[in-house]
């Protein structure tokens, strides 16, 4: 660990490299996180199966490359497939737990996540998969900093998805219905909004966001049937930090998480990167709780 720190001091450009890598992947975290915020805010469900949707999106794009189709086409394809799957899962399962105790929906989506892990394992095997995008890498500063083009494309794509989502929520009738339901489901129902359909659409959109994010992940990084949970936890952390329904904050938190995670992965060693993510989760939650507690505490 000390060696790695020393390395950072000796080669400051390495810091640039790490930050760049972290920020580029952070945008993808933000997409999945915004989906989670949407479902959490509108339906009051914490979707633990989030990360598995990301992985599934990645496997779909990977499958396309096996059929010699460009994986970039996987972004819309995965989004559409995940959208349909999300709606089916909503009507099959989520709908029955949406008005119950939060722990029930938490456990139900946790069950789905375990189920999907092994289903993906059965279909695509337990190897780490990547999809070749065909794009190359730029070298900067005399080969000291590398920028893979596909990561840049993924970054831009993630931001574009964010913009599209804002436009959708602000401009379309369905988007307005979703926002109204998020503010007050009962009032929305009284005013004639079919909240059941709004929930279905919200859940479907969330799955589609994850699918698109996953397609970028498989091109820029890799997917594996059992590594979905860290993505769920990352989404959760970003939402806890950024709050529900604040897209710029979600993107910022996503970029920050990506950067800190890559730095930590380098300094502590890659074997501790997942541990770092989960420890960070606990630290953030404890910190949030002390801040809340302080609010209640007396000033004098």
């Amino acid at each position: 660990m000390a060696d790695n720190l020393q390395l950072l001091f000796d080669a400051p450009l390495l810091i640039v490299q790490l930050l760049l890598d972290g920020i580029l992947i952070g945008a993808i975290f933000a997409v999945a996180a915004y989906g989670m915020a949407l479902v959490w805010g509108v339906m009051n469900v914490i979707n633990v199966v989030q990360g598995e949707y990301v992985m599934l999106g990645g496997f779909i794009a990977f499958q396309l490359t096996l059929w010699d189709i460009n994986p970039f086409l996987g972004v819309p394809v995965a989004a559409v497939i995940l959208f349909v799957l999300g709606i089916a899962i909503y009507y099959g399962i989520i709908r029955r737990v949406v008005d119950k105790d939060l722990f029930i929906s938490l456990l139900a989506t946790f069950g789905l996540s375990i189920l999907m892990q092994q289903l993906m394992n059965q279909i695509w095997g337990s190897q780490v998969r990547t999809a070749q995008s065909g794009l190359s890498t730029w070298f900067l500063f005399d080969y000291q900093v590398t920028v893979s083009q596909v990561k840049l494309v993924a970054f831009a794509g993630a931001l574009m998805i964010g913009v599209l989502l804002i436009l959708f929520l602000k401009r379309t009738r369905l988007g307005q219905a979703i926002r109204a339901t998020a503010q007050n489901p009962r009032a929305a129902r009284v005013l004639g909004i079919d909240t059941d359909r709004v929930f279905a659409a919200t859940y479907g959109i969330n799955a589609a966001l994850c699918g698109a994010a996953g397609a970028f992940v498989v091109m820029a990084y890799s997917v594996h049937p059992y590594t979905g949970l860290p993505y769920t936890v990352r989404s959760f952390m970003i939402v806890v930090v950024a709050g529900l329904g604040n897209l710029p904050a979600v993107i910022l938190a996503g970029l920050g998480l990506g950067a800190s995670e890559t730095m930590a992965g380098f300094i502590l060693g890659v074997q501790f990167q997942v541990a770092f993510v989960f420890c960070l989760l606990v630290i953030i939650l404890v910190f949030r709780n002390t801040m809340l507690g302080r609010k209640r505490r007396y000033l004098k």
Binding site: I93, L107, A108, F110, G111, L112, S113, I114, L115, M116, Q117, Q118, L119, Q122
Partner: peptide, 10 residues
């Protein structure tokens, strides 16, 4: 087994 476990949980 995990598929079955997931189904049982749900």
């Amino acid at each position: 087994q995990r598929v079955a476990l997931g189904l049982i949980i749900v």
